[in-house]
């Protein structure tokens, strides 16, 4: 489903974020990507969403090489993914419902169907009935849940999360981890990066460990 082959990412100035990484993630897997800060986790996740392009090597999703995807094709790739970033990246001048609806507006969903999906997504993340609230009135954990609802509202087959619990206390972090596990059980391929090795331990995920741009550990569930 997701296939990295000898992927190198280096930047002008000589810094190398990934120095030849290869791995494969199968459909329906729950994969935890770990490593210290600067190990290359975010760069790797950004490549799957075509936010970054490899300097060499190839990145394939469902068999399609996205390393040299045309700029006009990138939005359509991103629509097939659910993306959760370290910061919630919500629009604070829009309500919770409007934030969650944004991917559906972008894809031109009929408003009635979109509204139903938003309600369902918010209930899925435990925020049912709070659709009219503004994000500023929510806690950090709740804001991250809104971001997760926004990521799943388009029913993606792949969910990618870059340290979604980085700014949350352990109780909130456990709830978020549980949510990702529930999505995985529903058939979604989940790739989540974290620097907390214990966070997903009880779900026995597959693991990828990065260090200084290299894959230094891998274990299947």
């Amino acid at each position: 489903m997701i296939n990295f082959e000898q992927v190198v990412k280096s930047y002008p100035g000589g810094y190398t974020a990934l120095a030849g990484v290869s791995f494969e993630i199968r459909h329906g897997e729950l994969v935890v990507l770990s490593g210290h800060s600067g190990a290359g986790k975010s760069t790797l996740l950004k490549m799957i969403a075509a936010i970054e392009r490899p300097s060499s090597g190839s990145v394939k999703i469902n068999g399609q090489d996205i390393s040299h995807l045309k700029p006009t094709a990138i939005p359509y790739l991103r629509r097939s993914l659910g993306l959760v970033l370290q910061e919630s990246r919500l629009l604070f001048d829009r309500s919770v419902a409007e934030n969650v609806m944004l991917p559906l507006v972008i894809t031109g969903h009929p408003p009635r169907d979109a509204a139903k999906r938003v309600v369902a997504a918010l209930e899925r993340v435990g925020l049912g009935g709070r659709d009219r609230e503004m994000p500023a009135g929510l806690s950090g954990g709740e804001q991250q849940r809104v971001a997760i609802a926004r990521a799943i509202v388009n029913r993606p087959s792949i969910l990618i999360a870059d340290e979604p619990t980085a700014h949350l206390d352990s109780a909130y972090a456990d709830e978020i981890a549980k949510l990702f596990k529930s999505f995985n059980e529903a058939g979604v391929t989940v790739l989540v990066s974290t620097h907390d090795d214990k966070l997903f331990a009880e779900y026995r995920p597959s693991r990828l460990v990065l260090g200084k741009g290299l894959l230094i550990g891998a274990a299947a569930s």
């Binding site: 969403a49 936010i51 006009t72 939005p75 359509y76 790739l77 991103r78 629509r79 993306l83 970033l85 990246r89 919500l90 629009l91 944004l102 991917p103 972008i106 894809t107 926004r150």
Partner: peptide
């Protein structure tokens, strides 16, 4: 800028 960034991350095309 923030809204444009977020929209692009969620799959908004340039014409959109």
């Amino acid at each position: 800028r923030h809204e444009i960034d977020v929209s692009r991350l969620l799959g908004a095309t340039d014409p959109f």
